[in-house]
């Protein structure tokens, strides 16, 4: 199966080429995609942890006697 291609437009000559990615470029793409997937997972985990911490904090404030309105207004 051939590698994906890229489009190259020369803005001076107007020439448009469609070039197959080299194996090295394919490897770099895979490295980039893996790094991006890890970064996304870390961001999602961080957001989840933050939301859970907020929920725990809100629950404690409710237990101390604050109203939901007072908690939201902070």
């Amino acid at each position: 199966m051939p590698n994906p291609t890229r489009i190259e437009v020369n803005c001076i000559t107007g020439e448009v080429l469609e070039v197959e990615l080299t194996d090295a470029e394919m490897e770099q793409r895979e490295v980039d995609a893996a790094a991006y997937a890890i970064e996304q997972a870390e961001q999602e985990a961080e957001a989840t942890a933050k939301a859970e911490a907020k929920a725990r904090g809100d629950a404690k404030l409710l237990a101390l006697g604050l109203t939901a309105e007072e908690i939201t207004a902070r």
Binding site: P4, T5, R6, I7, E8, V9, N10, C11, I12, T13, G14, V16, E18, L21, E25, R29
Partner: peptide
């Protein structure tokens, strides 16, 4: 417009504009 609009015919990994005036 510099050149013409590039419409992808079959899936491509990237688009490069080179030799930009």
């Amino acid at each position: 417009q510099i050149g013409t609009t590039q419409t992808v015919g079959s899936a491509v990994a990237s688009v490069t504009f080179s030799d930009i005036p």
